[in-house]
Amino acid sequence: MNYKDMLRADKMPHIWCPGCGHGIILAAFLRAMAAKEVDPDKVVVVSGIGCSARASGYLDFNTLHTTHGRAIAFATGIKLANPELMVVVLTGDGDCAAIGGNHLIHGARRNIDLTVIVFNNSIYGMTSGQYSPLTPHRKKATTAPYGNFDHPFDLVELAKGAGATFVARGATAYPRQLEKVISHGLDHKGFSVIEAVSQCPTYYGRRNKMGSAVDMLHWIKENTSPGGKEEGKIPLGVFVQVQRPEYCSNYYESIESLARGEKGE
């Protein structure tokens, strides 16, 4: 299947600004999907609120655009109600790490089979450039005119700490690697978190004097380490890939044994 067939072409053009990295992430996701044997009728894409969340509307799957921060909670209900469905969450740094942070850590703790792709452009783009929990310290935003007083989360460490069984990071400057880690995340049975480092030239780049979208991509290229080893750079790659009983499988297997009259421990 060609990845373009998974797009709702009639919904183009998309709402994203010129130079936005979200299209690169979406394309990486779709290329990863296209390489798999999936029935689009059985794929559900859930998003929250923000620039990233608009991605769901462009995809020819069962798509659900929910409330701010709550995509993982909605997705949990869908997956548990019908585990046959492949459920993917597309979210942003604000949606996922601020207002939705609680659902992220509890999804990870449960190890429910969701693939969460976090479009991290370090800013609230939809509301025109406020700082998020992933905006670096001292960087500027409309709500951080003197530089960000907050310190950011390391999303990979957060997901690891919360117990996610697949944790990876990719970047828009390395779209093939991004596609690969997303693909592994989709294959993984359990809670997968993939942080996709992206650029927002309109609201983050301009205010922080980072130049054009191309300049920002160069910046990402120079400041990330695809092999994950270079000192002082943001590591990319797969950081956690472990097997633990998946929530829904465990739930339904357990209640089946209940139905057979076996007592729980």
């Binding site: 709550r70 909605f74 869908i78 997956k79 109600a81 019908n82």
Partner: peptide
């Protein structure tokens, strides 16, 4: 769920799944 916001979200999600 982890709170009431997640509870109703999950319930709505399940209903969307039929």
């Amino acid at each position: 769920m982890e709170d009431e916001i997640a509870s109703i979200a999950a319930a709505i999600g399940a209903s969307i799944a039929g």
